[in-house]
Design a protein around this nucleic acid. Structure first.
Lengths: 213, 213
DNA sequence: GTCTATATTCAGATAGAC
DNA sequence: GTCTATCTGAATATAGAC
């Protein structure tokens, strides 16, 4: 198995880029190979020289695109100070950044996630489990250390938190793109840290949070 | 314009049911009219007698399916006691119930939501805005009444909270269907009420919540 | 490696019998 | 109102020239 030639891998990258945009916007089935080729500036035959089928192109695209996501997640959890809530904030941050950088890929993941009985479904489920799994571990550690409440339902809560970050981020990119990343991060932080309520009985540490980082 | 005959509207209902399942599982484009007809137990021609095209069938299905959702939302906000957090909890509850009852429709909304440049996209965006809008109003009222923090970003926070509920609920139905609704509700309530942290400095009111309702 | 031309399959939509 | 039969366009995938 020889390493792909520079020329070929450049073509593949162009095809990835063209395909992910079209797939996200129209769906996989509604996108023709012709369209992908056109957008990438090559002929249809070239697509089939590089990938055996449209499905294979899509799966390769997923594998390639997901790698940076899992890498970013691992980074945000591992080497860092603070407790569980701080780790959750960093993960939310990493999620936000990923969505900002690869909005089409995330839209695609969101859309295809729920369709069982499609060839690529297992791959998507694996990604989902991996992402939610990292969050679950953080929650578990937080419970063990006593930082988080002992009766926390880590399974269901992790799913909900992932949903908050991912959909919150997509909502941002799609409907409020003029807002700055820091604003989005802060909104999520407020929910994560349980600071929705006005700080009536507590001290004023909530105001410190505004200047955080 | 005469009212549809009972026979015809029965057929339409069967077509809706067949279509929503197939659309959710395979996507709209990947589902053929033939498949829909087969599953509904009618011939393909009958589909075209009732709907002028596959797209029109899909849009009618959306309009019909969404009505109960917006109705449930209005109900859960309007006539009820308690402040903003209580209202948010009731809305989360309503969302959970809706997802439990119409999982296919919700999966479909989630999947098609992000594809601009499709005929039905405006309809889906309208639904999204409506749902998020109700949450935003509740947050705004909470801020005005002083229950919620004055500097709350109602726009971004409402998007995040909707995401938490919807994806949390879908996650539940898809990956943890054995869990009971009350467990899911409680997990979301914990996040909403900012009770992730162990109740160290506070009193034990957190334990009261377990027996809530 | 990439192109053009083409075979083949298949889905959307219609016409007309019942 | 619903069926069967059929038309038509389009999309996947291949073959072979360059």
């Amino acid at each position: 198995m020889t390493v792909s030639s520079p020329r070929r891998s450049a073509t593949r990258q162009r095809l990835y880029q063209a395909a992910v945009t079209l797939f996200a916007e129209q769906g996989v089935s509604a996108t023709s190979v012709e369209q992908i080729a056109e957008r990438a500036g090559v002929a249809k035959g070239t697509v089939y020289y590089n990938f055996s089928s449209k499905t294979e192109l899509f799966e390769a695209l997923l594998r390639d695109g997901i790698e940076p996501l899992t890498a970013a997640l691992r980074r945000s959890v591992g080497a860092a100070p603070g407790g569980a809530l701080a780790a959750l904030e960093r993960m939310a941050d990493a999620g936000l950044a990923f969505v900002a950088e690869h909005p089409d890929l995330v839209r695609l993941l969101m859309a295809e996630q729920w369709r069982s009985s499609r060839p690529w479904h297992p791959t998507l489920v694996a990604v989902r489990r991996q992402v939610a799994g990292v969050v679950r571990e953080v929650l578990e550690d937080g419970v063990k250390s006593g930082e988080l409440r002992a009766d926390l339902d880590v399974e269901l809560t992790s799913g909900a938190l992932v949903g908050m970050v991912v959909l919150g981020a997509l909502d941002w990119r799609t409907f409020h793109p003029e807002r700055r990343p820091a604003e989005v991060r802060r909104a999520m932080s407020v929910v994560l840290r349980g600071q929705l309520e006005a700080a009536a009985g507590r001290n004023e540490e909530g105001r410190d949070e505004e200047g955080r980082r």
